[in-house]
Design a protein around this nucleic acid. Structure first.
Lengths: 239, 239
DNA sequence: TCACTTGCGTGAACGCCGTTAACTCGCTAA
DNA sequence: TTAGCGAGTTAACGGCGTTCACGCAAGTGA
């Protein structure tokens, strides 16, 4: 079954819808991304969009998927801009790149990492957005694993880990990562990720404004601490 | 000007509106908190609510203020349940209490600490919600300062702090805290707060579900680390 | 007591929104 | 060549925030 002309047109329309939705999101905020607004912008009427998406929610999920992919691409660019051997540098670049992207795309970030939208259950299976999110997750995870392979930073032994955590870590390792690793590595990964994403979220959502105008130094401090935990050779940001 | 009968009735209605809104929020989620739904529930019509609030957004902000106050009250209860001398215990109780409240009130938490709602600019001045948020902030801040007074945990000296941060910390200290303190104490406070709220947010919003079913142990690990940084005498949670 | 103000609430309406249903039209595949 | 399918339309439903004109009762001053 070759790709027919119709199929190409359809794919192009889907892309145009995504792009339009994206532009509205950036320009006018998430609440302005309505079916009618998208259709209006494209010279169509709202019901026509139902030929391409089952509902408003599904369109949004698709948009989320697109944005995840874009973020992943941006991070990979940041990472591969660092010379091949410098794994510490790559890790720092990814962390800073994540924050930079988040600050430059606050509304998109809110869609990806904010409170889960009602009606957009984050629990959907076999979802496009879900898949893109997983791919994104691998970006940091592979970096982390590579770091572990090369530097063997100190991690807690299995019997030093909270028993309530051991089972969960094992499941995550065996079912998702599927690489033979000490559980302590995974615990460290999660700890780092919580700090990184947690810190970025707070800053992006303005929850540090009560004290700071520019939380950049606090973020850098955090990166430094994470680096220390992982035995990274720290280098200050380029800019 | 004494409080007239009208004033009392009016205040009662305002409270009933808040309560109704709150109930709808808890039962049906934030998107269900509409003027019409509130009015319906109260046996009124939507336009009547405009006698009490300028707009839907302002009603929501008021609701946020109420919830902040409730959270503050809950935390103070947790804190004062710990014997007077045990400042470490109080700090741990507050941290765990914050997480417990957040998990037990996910929708409310999202309203307070999620991405700022569009149309609900977080930058409003002299706002009721803003005021309640500030009061909430003092809960942890005073605990932190009390800890500093009593235990003098190690903090960086002024000239060890990122110059880009010094000015901001000084301004926050002089204009908000108004207590004579080394800037390093404030830096530490912010670092702790970022980790605490960042971690709780991630968990509440389900952004650790990709790996963990119960992030509790990770949170406890975080509390432990924070405790170590502040020289707390760590005690495992009661429950 | 009587007129008057003030505040609370209603109903109708406007323009948004997501969604559904019935319909048209042109391309495509048999 | 023709039947059918896919993409698009218009009309409509119910829900939303919001505005406006109006009624009505409670409080107020003479």
């Amino acid at each position: 079954m070759a790709e027919t002309r119709r199929d190409r047109l359809r794919a192009a329309t889907v892309r145009e819808i995504s792009d339009t939705a994206r532009r509205i999101l950036v320009d006018e905020g998430p609440e302005a991304v309505t079916l009618r607004a998208i259709a209006r912008e494209m010279g169509m009427t709202a019901p026509a969009l139902y030929r391409y998406f089952d509902s408003h929610g599904e369109l949004l999920r698709h948009l989320i998927g697109d944005i995840f992919t874009e973020l992943t691409t941006a991070l990979h660019a940041d990472i591969s801009a660092v010379p091949e051997g410098d794994i510490s540098g790559k890790f720092l670049a990814a962390s800073r790149g994540f924050r930079r992207w988040a600050l430059a795309h606050r509304r998109e970030y809110a869609l990806l990492f904010g409170a889960p939208l009602p009606g957009l259950g984050h629990k959907e299976q076999a979802d496009f957005a879900e898949e893109c999110a997983r791919t994104f997750g691998w970006t940091f995870l592979t970096l982390f694993l590579e770091l572990w392979q090369k530097r063997r930073f100190p991690v807690p032994a299995d019997d030093e880990i909270d028993p309530a955590l051991v089972g969960q870590l094992r499941r995550y390792r065996d079912e998702v990562i599927q690489v033979d690793l000490p559980l302590g590595v995974i615990q460290r990964f999660l700890q780092c990720w919580v700090r990184l994403q947690g810190g970025v979220s707070l800053e992006v959502f303005g929850h540090l404004d009560f004290a700071l105008e520019d939380p950049g130094p606090i973020f850098e401090l955090m990166v430094r601490e994470i680096g220390a935990m992982l035995g990274l050779t720290y280098a200050p940001p380029a800019s």
